[in-house]
Write a protein that binds this DNA or RNA. Structure first.
Length: 275
DNA sequence: CCCAAGTCCTGGTTGC
DNA sequence: TGCAACCAGGACTTGG
C-alpha cells in the first residue's frame, strides 16, 4: 500500500524525471478518477504546462505547474505512477497517461496504473486540492513534536491505532506503518488515545519518525502491489515486525502475535509487549 | 464467500 | 436542551 514512505520515494523520482519539463499531451484519462476537474479541462489545460515543483503532504503528491495550475495525485490502495518511454506498451490497468518532454528530448509517459479504483487526480487553479486543507502536518517532515502530539491525543477515546490512521491528526500513516510504529513503541493499538502518559507519547513520537524514516531509506514496502516509477520494488517488507505476522512469534518476547480488528483494519500486535 | 485497505460519507453518541 | 465534536461502520473496488 502506498503510504508516506512509498509516496516520498515516488516523489523523489518524479522530481528527477519531471522538473523543468512540460506536459505535451493527455493521452488517456478515465473520468471516474477525476476530482475538482473534468476530462475536458484536463485536455485543455495540461498540454504545455511546465512542472515547476513536486511536493508531498501525507500520501498526496502535488505537482505545481506553470500558469498557477496544480495536479494533486493520490495513489489509493494499489496505484502506481510509472515513467515509461513511448515505445513501451501501456500497462494493463492504465487509468491515465500524460506525455511529457524537455527541450529537445524524446517524449515519455507518466502513466497512472491502478488495478482497483481508489486512486484520484485533481487539476486545480491557484492551489492544491481543497481537501488537503483538512489534513494534519506531514508525519515525517511536518512541524510537530511530542507536545503537539499530546495535545491532539488529549481527551480522545478512539483506539490509538484509529488515531494514527486519521489523516486529520498526522498525515501519511497507513495500516502497515501503524502496526510497525505501535510495535516499536510498545503500545497497544487498542489503548484509548487520550490515556497515554507523557513518556508513552514521547515513545510514540520517536517511533513514528523512526519507522517512516526507515521506510523511506528502504524505498517503501512492496508486500503487495507497490513499485516505484521504474517498476522496482522496495524492501521494507523484509523488515516487518508486526504487520501481517499474526500467529508468528513476537520478535521481542516470542509469544505469538495476535490479530484483531481496529477501525475496520486488520491489526497484528503482541498482547504481552504492547500495552 | 471472505479478505485486503485508501478516503469519503452517514448516522449515532458524547459531553460541554 | 442544543449543538458541535467525536467516533464507528458502510460504500466503493478487484484479485487472490
Amino acid at each position: 500500500m502506498p503510504e508516506l514512505p512509498e509516496v516520498e520515494t515516488v516523489r523523489r523520482e518524479l522530481a528527477a524525471a519531471l522538473l523543468g519539463r512540460a506536459f505535451t499531451a493527455v493521452e488517456r484519462v478515465e473520468p471516474f478518477m477525476l476530482r475538482d476537474t473534468t476530462a475536458e479541462q484536463l485536455f485543455a489545460l495540461l498540454p504545455e504546462a511546465e512542472v515547476q515543483s513536486i511536493s508531498r503532504q501525507g500520501k498526496f503528491l502535488v505537482l505545481g505547474l506553470s500558469g498557477g495550475l496544480f495536479l494533486t495525485i493520490h495513489l489509493g490502495m494499489t496505484g502506481q505512477l510509472l515513467v515509461l518511454p513511448l515505445a513501451a506498451e501501456l500497462p494493463r490497468h492504465a487509468r491515465y497517461s500524460l506525455r511529457f518532454a524537455g527541450e529537445g528530448e524524446p517524449e515519455r509517459r507518466l502513466v497512472f496504473a491502478d488495478m482497483r479504483k481508489f486512486g484520484r487526480v485533481h487539476l486545480t487553479e491557484g492551489g492544491p486540492a481543497a481537501r488537503l486543507e483538512a489534513m494534519g502536518p506531514d508525519a515525517l517532515e511536518g512541524a510537530w513534536g511530542p507536545k503537539q502530539l499530546a495535545k491532539s491525543l488529549a481527551g480522545r477515546r478512539a483506539p490509538l491505532k484509529a488515531f494514527l490512521l486519521d489523516q486529520r491528526h498526522l498525515a501519511g500513516i497507513g495500516n502497515i506503518y501503524a502496526d510497525e510504529i505501535l510495535f516499536q513503541a510498545g503500545l497497544s493499538p487498542l489503548r484509548p488515545a487520550g490515556e497515554l502518559r507523557p513518556a508513552e507519547v514521547r515513545r510514540l513520537a520517536v517511533a513514528i519518525r523512526e519507522k517512516l524514516e526507515e521506510g523511506v531509506r528502504l524505498r517503501g514496502c512492496s508486500i503487495s502491489d507497490y513499485v516505484d516509477t521504474k517498476g522496482r520494488r522496495g524492501s521494507f517488507q523484509d523488515s516487518l515486525q508486526a504487520y501481517g505476522r499474526h500467529g508468528e512469534p513476537c520478535p521481542r518476547c516470542g509469544r505469538p502475535l495476535v490479530r484483531t480488528l481496529v477501525a475496520g483494519r486488520g491489526t497484528a500486535y503482541c498482547a504481552h509487549c504492547q500495552r
